[in-house]
């Protein structure tokens, strides 16, 4: 099976940030791990998405210097982002249900 290029990146990012604050590279790693490498993207294209979310106010960013001396830009879910995640999640569930419903009827007929 051909690896799927990522869609609904915003929903995935929001859901990754729901549990803790993470930085860009960590997101890529987490996405690959949680989707068993189904989701794969050109890693650089994650950043325009993150910056757009920052501008929209669903996430906020801060820079933190690790003990190793490396500075990383962490993203944090805002109050607005939490609301957005709940909405998008519900919308996605409706969509997935609808697709599944269609697929089921096809199998029956």
């Amino acid at each position: 099976m051909k690896k799927q290029s990522i869609e609904h990146t915003q929903l995935l990012v929001l859901s990754l940030l729901a549990s803790r604050d993470i930085y860009g590279y960590e997101m890529i790693v987490e996405l690959a791990r949680r989707s068993q490498n189904v989701f794969e993207m050109k890693e650089g294209t994650l950043y325009p998405v993150l910056h757009a979310m920052e501008k929209a106010g669903t996430v906020a960013a801060y820079e933190q210097t690790a003990p190793t001396g490396r500075t990383r830009k962490y993203y944090r879910l805002t109050q607005k982002g939490r609301g957005c995640l709940a909405d998008e999640k519900a919308a996605w569930a409706r969509y997935a249900d609808a697709v599944n419903a269609v697929l089921r009827t096809e199998a029956l007929s």
Binding site: K42, G44, Y47, P48
Partner: peptide
């Protein structure tokens, strides 16, 4: 290499 096209990423950020 895995970062993809730098121009696309750059333009995507600059637009914001």
């Amino acid at each position: 290499e895995r970062m993809g096209d730098p121009a696309e990423t750059g333009r995507g950020i600059a637009r914001l």
